[in-house]
Amino acid sequence: MHTVRFTAETSSNSVLERDFVVGEVAGVLWSPASGSDRAPLVLMGHGGGLHKKTPGLMARAHDTVTRWGFTVVAIDAPGHGDRPRTAEDEQARADLSQAMEAGETERFEAVSVRYSTSLAERAVPEWQATLDALQKLPEIGTEAPIGYGGGMSLGTAIGIPLTAVEPRITAAIFGGGFFAHEALIEAARRITVPVQFLLPWDEEYVDRQSVLALFDAFASKDKTLLANPGTHRRMRWVGVDDEFLVRHLDRAGTSPA
C-alpha cells in the first residue's frame, strides 16, 4: 500500500500547494493555507498532452480552494507531465500527429480511441491508489466527500471510467471533446451520481452526435448538459453552474475559514 510523500511546498494567495508522489505517480494537492479540516476533496484531470499544473487547471483549483474552502488534487496521466513515456506513448503521439497533419479523420479517431482507452486503463487504478493514500492524511480522512471536478478531453476520457467504478465519487463534471467509443458509453451507463457535462458546440475533431449519445448514456437522474459555441481549444464558458459541486458535496453556503 503506497503512502503520500510530499516533495515540495509553496503558499500563495491563501492557497497551500504541495507536490507529492504516490508510488510512481506525480501529483499536486491544493488546500486552504489556514487548514482544510476534512473539507470536500475535488479530483481534477488535465487534457491530452498537458499536465497537472497546466494554467487552466491551476486557475480552477485555486478558485475552488479560495471560494469554497475545498481541497483539490491533480495527478499526471501516464506519459504526461513528470511521468516517463513508454514506447506505446511515443508511438501513439506520433500517429496522432501524422493523422492530423494528413487530414486522415478515420485514422485519427482510431488512434485516439485506442490510446485514450489505454491511458484510462492505466490511470484509473492510479487515481484509486492516490485516493487511498490521501485518505490516510489527517486533514482529509475517509469522511471527506469526493467529487470529480472535470477536465476536458482526456480528463473526461479517464474520469468517466473512474467514476463508473469508484463509489467514493459522489458528483462529477465532465466535458467533450473526445471520441465517445462504446467502452466509454458502457462506463457512462454505470454512472448514477449527479453529472454536469460541458460541450464545445463547434468541436472540430469529434462528431457532436457521439458526444450527445454519451451524455444520453449516463444513468444519472440528475444530469445537465451545457453547450456553448467554441472549438476544442477556443472556448468561452457562459452559464456554467459554478455551485454544482458545492451543492452535491453538502457544503452549500460554506466559505473558507
Rank of each mutant, 00 (worst) to 15 (best):
W127S: 11
L134K: 02
Q135F: 08
L137C: 05
E139I: 02
E139M: 05
E139P: 00
I140M: 02
I140F: 00
G141I: 09
G141S: 09
T142I: 10
T142C: 10
E143V: 14
E143T: 15
E143S: 14
E143C: 11
P145M: 07
P145Q: 11
P145Y: 04
P145W: 04
G147R: 09
G147T: 07
Y148R: 01
Y148A: 02
Y148I: 05
G149E: 01
G150I: 07
G150H: 04
G150M: 13
G151E: 01
M152L: 14
S153F: 10
L154N: 04
L154E: 04
G155Y: 03
G155C: 01
G155K: 01
T156Y: 08
A157F: 05
A157T: 10
A157I: 03
A157K: 04
A157E: 07
A157L: 11
I158K: 02
G159C: 00
G159N: 00
I160Y: 05
P161N: 14
L162C: 07
L162A: 08
L162R: 06
T163F: 00
A164D: 01
A164W: 06
V165W: 08
E166S: 10
E166I: 15
P167Y: 10
I169Y: 01
A172G: 14
I173T: 03
I173A: 00
